[in-house]
Nucleic acid binder design. Structure first.
Lengths: 336, 336
DNA sequence: GCTCAGAATGTGACCGTACACATCCTCGAC
DNA sequence: GTCGAGGATGTGTACGGTCACATTCTGAGC
């Protein structure tokens, strides 16, 4: 406490103690070539001794380079986003960049905008947006963003600044799988309407049914949670006018599996269920879940690689969607 | 693109365009009281028009207040940490603070230290550490941290700077529950050795068995994943010399449930299983999992509240552990 | 019409760093 | 011994804000 309000040592303090000029200290910090090893060592010793730490704010101010990439994320506690963020962080670190992650709790325009605003005021050098709401694009337009940016979503809206796993293709894979198994009455429990992914998966489902000339039903609008899957399942299973369900994610599929057990519906004997995401737990559900795997880590890595190339001055290249993969396990089967 | 390399407008640009001094603009930004409404409006108009955004680096430099709280986190993709972070973020935002989240991928000393170093060089005003490795404490000591900090772990090592759910108590609750059900041969599948939580849960398990004068067995050292629980289960179940398992987390319990089904072991008839965390999915496992619930969100909220009071100048108060809660579902039962 | 308090606004300095440039040192070549 | 080249080191300035203080404006009270 007695030393508390004393200000942290700065570059000049270090210089004085080491008997050199502040510029020499600066050189040591940025390991500039022409500096005598003895001098360098002396400076480093002082730095360690006084616990000097360069002030990032000052550095960012003068260089206008923060070495930071901003990430705007919603629901970063979900498996997908958090896996991607993890991969982004690792890739960024390798390139010498840090992440500044901002979560927005609600998807309304104001909070998206204020999140982006905050990142920009941090002088981030690039922005990756993982907020899966459509309004994000409006906010990006409004804010006149000049730094490289990328949204990790698959709308066709701005292909030069988007990167993602092809959700529509994934949904079609899942639906096609059920059709191939002989199902004709296939339900879809989707995610919340305003999520881009939810919408894309729903579109994929509808397209595939349409092409197969099968009856499309209005999807059930869920909220991604296992609880929803469970309660929706209890309700839906009262009328067994369907034999397969494509769930918008694995959690809802889990809840639905639960409901099936309680209602005495055998999976996959009476009911086939397919999820989406392939969370690590899905392989251990009962029964192990057939689902669509998306490589979240790869998305993260590519995002950074695109950002870096833009940072080097390359033109933003066009959207390149990753292909998801169907993982067939035991929750789906041929219609008896 | 044509406007690309032009520098962002600063406070003086705004001042010039609004026909006032830069200080007046600064007053508008910090809504200082004595400013004529007309002037204020004029400045705000210009700000909007040119898309001016205050430079945080400059502001942090001069005020040495970043309005940012640093969070050091490991494995932030896990349910617990990410739930806490979410709560921390919300609470911090309400108090006008932002979060700077840094993930460390490995738990070694160097990366913990560099993570903390980074946060400190960002001039964060406080630090919350969620990295569950013991070495964190050494790093904190070494770095001569002068800002308020808090670790979200339950070691007794620094009670004035720790806050957490009582892991030992939680583990005892789980173990006691199994003992009460008549089990005498109880196994423990723990998390990785170097995780503080894993260690605490193991200690709680051992203590409770010890007090009940039951045989303690060497815990199986896992890695938190469902896969591990599954494969460990397949192995362990070859010798059925136990009737209950306390798992270090819910994921491993899920894997174990899976193994039980495959080996034809009925849960809870032949085998009782208890998890830890109460992830939202646990209620929908088969059977629904008995587990220990910890209120991660509450931990996050309290963390911020402690930090804020320290930031206001209060002395750090002593560690106050939250009590976890046993949630009995259907994976545990009386010994036949 | 003058005075004066208080509101409104402006000026200078500084935060900690990096860059551009100036200066000093060292040493080999003549 | 002098010179110059290039390595090593030092000095001024700018980055974009805020703070302390100075100055100007405004309107009420006499």
């Amino acid at each position: 406490m007695e030393q508390d309000r004393v200000r942290a040592p700065n570059i000049r303090d270090v210089a004085r103690l080491a008997g050199v000029s502040y510029q020499t200290v600066s050189r040591v910090l940025n390991d500039s070539p022409s500096i005598r090893p003895a001098t360098k060592q002396r400076v480093l010793d002082v730095i360690n001794e006084v616990g000097y730490r360069p002030n990032q704010a000052a550095r960012a101010l003068v260089t206008s380079r923060s070495r930071t990439i901003g990430v705007l994320s919603a629901q970063s506690s979900h498996y997908g986003p958090s896996t991607s963020i993890s991969a982004i962080e690792i890739a960024a670190r390798e390139a010498g960049y840090r992440l500044s992650i901002t979560n927005i709790s609600s998807g309304d325009y104001a909070s998206i905008k204020s999140g982006l605003d905050y990142l920009l005021s941090q002088s981030v050098e690039a922005i990756i947006v993982m907020a899966p709401q459509v309004r994000v694009f409006d906010a990006i337009d409004d804010l006149m963003i000049t730094v490289p940016f990328l949204t990790l979503e698959s709308t066709g809206r701005d292909p030069r600044h988007s990167l993602s796993v092809d959700q529509v293709a994934g949904a079609r894979l899942a639906t096609r799988h059920l059709i191939d198994l002989g199902h004709t009455e296939i339900l879809h429990i989707s995610g919340p309407q305003d999520w881009i992914e939810a919408d894309a998966r729903m579109r994929g489902y509808l397209q595939e049914l349409d092409e197969a000339d099968l009856r499309t039903r209005a999807p059930v609008l869920g909220d991604w949670t296992a609880h929803f899957g469970y309660y929706a399942g209890l309700e839906l299973l009262r009328f067994r006018d369907f034999t397969a369900v494509f769930c918008g994610n694995d959690q809802m599929a889990l809840g639905l599996l639960h409901a099936c057990r309680e209602m005495g519906v055998d999976v996959p004997g009476d009911m086939s269920i397919v999820g989406f995401d392939d969370i690590p737990e899905a392989a251990h559900f009962f029964p192990p879940l057939t689902t669509v795997r998306q490589n979240f880590a790869e998305v993260g890595r590519r995002a950074i690689s695109h950002i870096l190339s833009e940072l080097r001055g390359d033109e933003p290249t066009v959207h390149e969607q990753l292909t998801p993969e169907l993982v067939v396990r035991e929750s789906s089967g041929r219609l008896a």
